[in-house]
């Protein structure tokens, strides 16, 4: 069955996309989850829909316009919440809905029917293009390099940013760099699972990994492996029963989470029983 499965070019492309998505989401998701930036990331995700609309209207590649729009929104949220007195979560709420509004406006203004709209909302890993793969590959490479070179500093800032500032570390600069990478990761993975579902790729594997380890580096590594399993299972399900891949990938990940949680509870119970004896 596997060899039959791999015969189609779109299947190999989607497998590659699944692997690259696991890597980028494994790394950036760990950063987001441990810094409690999940809501912020949700905001960037939805804001980037504005970029997709603009792309449609001007006839650009929607992923590229979404990437630019997403990075600018992310930098905007970071800047406004740090430098002004507006609350960060309010800024996020405003940009979240403003991006969606812009996206819908431009898509309706674009003459003709927007054929792939659903694939941006719910993902369509089977339509991932070679260009998409190259962009995801480049992003994964950049993320791996930055997280290897700056690992100590990223961990230091994520844990206690005020304290890092007293050690003359360029905290603001690194925050801006990382928030841009968060935006790029989100946008480039939209093709895989869609705007509505992308946040799950950044949080479910990490939550599963966090059941087994309390070490930042290990959470990244385990998340990548869990992401890979989820993507593969999801693709097989999607292919077998012909449903959108985003939904089946997330379904697989949540199933893994439930099984992992049950295993953990079982292990605790066994340990407790042993202690009683």
């Amino acid at each position: 069955m596997i060899s039959e499965f791999l015969q189609y070019k779109f299947i190999t492309n989607s497998l590659l996309a699944g692997i690259l998505a696991s890597i980028s989401c494994g790394i950036i998701g760990t950063y987001i989850v441990t810094r409690r930036m999940v809501f912020l990331s949700g905001g960037i995700t939805h804001a980037s829909f504005g970029g997709i609309g603009i792309g449609y209207f001007f006839g650009l590649n929607p992923i590229i316009s979404a990437a630019i729009f997403g990075v600018l929104s992310a930098l905007g949220i970071e800047f406004v919440s740090k430098k002004t007195e507006i609350r960060e979560d309010s800024v996020i709420g405003i940009l979240w809905s403003f991006g969606m509004a812009l996206g819908i406006m431009f898509i309706f203004l674009t003459p003709g029917y927007a054929p792939n709209l659903m694939s941006y909302l719910f993902g369509s890993i089977l339509t991932v293009s070679t260009l998409d793969i190259w962009m995801m590959f480049g992003l994964s490479l950049i993320l791996i390099m930055i997280f290897i070179l700056f690992f100590r500093i990223i961990l230091f800032i994520s844990y206690d940013q005020e304290y890092a500032k007293t050690h003359k570390i360029a905290v603001d600069l690194i925050n801006y760099l990382l928030i841009s990478l968060v935006a790029l990761t989100i946008v480039l993975n939209i093709k895989v699972v869609g705007i509505i579902l992308v946040i799950s790729l950044l949080t479910i594997p990490q939550s599963i990994a966090n059941l087994f380890t309390k070490n930042f580096k290990n959470i990244i590594l385990i998340s990548i492996v869990i992401g890979l399993i989820g993507a593969f299972l999801g693709l097989v399900i999607s292919y077998k029963i012909n449903i959108p891949s985003g939904a089946s990938i997330i379904f697989s990940l949540v199933m893994i989470f439930i099984i992992a949680k049950l295993l953990q509870l079982l292990k605790r119970k066994i340990n407790l029983n042993r202690q009683r004896i």
Binding site: R152, L155, F156, Y159, A164, K168, I169, A170, K214, N215
Partner: peptide
């Protein structure tokens, strides 16, 4: 998710590091 040892070590990072 950070260990005691890593917290203490971070006190030695200064500047670019």
């Amino acid at each position: 998710p950070i260990t005691v040892k890593d917290v203490v070590l971070s006190g030695l990072i200064y500047g670019v590091g």
